[in-house]
């Protein structure tokens, strides 16, 4: 199956997951489905039957509210059965709204309080460097999330420690809860800010699988500094009525009717 087919499957499972509850973080989940498909189909050295395998690659989904997209991906890759997806946010679930490393097989880091994930990823990357186990640490941060100052402490750290085993994706979908990122708090030139902080940085269409593939391949080969891949994405990508919803798509409904319509579009 191509990574494009995988991304469709991930989007469908994401919406089934959120649809089981009727609403959730739809927009920022759908915007990262493509990078998750390429990562898990082609790059992540992980074993669904041994989620704590030593020396595995790790992903920190710092924008932890996009948990459903990661759950869909992990489910699709065989970390847990599909019926788990229908337990989202129900008391006692293994799949809480925001990622929890103690609950979900395949989730490598807890996230939810924005701005902490990059630092945690730096710690994982440092650990891998100490052990010399050649793992690659990936992190996905939101563009709005970059408004949290701790991210910039983490970037400074990653460059200072020459963490070339760290690859950071910025999901630049341009929207956050209160409006566009420009309206709420303009983050400015993300690419050049990462470059100024010492990251080898590229900017690509975050829904173009060939571009994602090439960017990851190059980032893995790059030595001497950490890498950043800025993904230009559409919040709600893949479903027409979510793509055009604006800032409201961050957390919105996924009724039975919406789910059915979305699944038809994703076929």
């Amino acid at each position: 199956m191509s990574t494009v087919e995988s991304s469709k499957k991930i989007r469908a499972l994401t919406l089934k997951c959120i649809g089981s509850l009727g609403s959730g973080h739809v927009g920022g989940s759908l915007s990262i489905a493509d990078v998750l498909a390429v990562l898990y189909d082609k790059y992540m050295n992980v074993d669904p039957s041994n989620p704590h395998m030593e020396g595995r690659d790790r992903l920190v989904l710092s924008k932890g509210h996009a948990g459903p997209a990661l759950y869909a991906t992990l489910c699709y890759k065989g970390f847990f059965p599909e019926d788990w997806l229908l337990t989202l946010n129900k008391l006692g679930t293994r799949l809480p709204s925001h990622c929890n490393m103690l609950l979900t097989p395949g989730v490598d880091m807890t996230a939810g309080s924005l701005g902490q994930g990059l630092s945690c990823a730096c710690g994982l990357a440092t650990g891998s460097k100490i052990l010399k186990d050649n793992a690659t640490i990936y992190a996905i941060v939101g563009d709005g999330e970059l408004q949290e100052g701790q991210n910039w402490c983490a970037l400074m750290y990653a460059a200072d420690k020459k963490l070339d085993n760290l690859i950071v994706f910025v999901d630049k979908n341009g929207l956050q809860i209160d409006g566009t990122t420009e309206e709420v708090m303009d983050i400015g030139d993300i690419e050049n800010k990462f470059r100024a902080f010492g990251f080898d940085t590229v900017s690509i269409n975050g829904h173009d699988h060939d571009a994602i593939d090439k960017a990851i391949k190059n980032a893995r080969l790059h030595k001497g500094s950490p890498s950043c891949i800025v993904l230009h994405t559409v919040k709600g990508k893949g479903v027409s009525f979510y793509e055009t919803m604006g800032a409201g798509v961050h957390s919105t409904t996924c009724t039975a009717e919406q789910l059915q319509k979305a699944l038809e579009e994703l076929r």
């Binding site: 630092s119 710690g123 650990g127 983490a154």
Partner: peptide
């Protein structure tokens, strides 16, 4: 030298870097 890590004046970052190290099996 490999296990002593200067983080600079950034206690929030230090805490979460420690979390990553702990998740990697270290005792920070």
């Amino acid at each position: 030298p490999e296990r002593a890590i200067e983080v600079g004046i950034a206690e929030d970052n230090m805490t979460c870097v420690a979390t990553g190290l702990a998740a990697y099996g270290f005792i920070p």
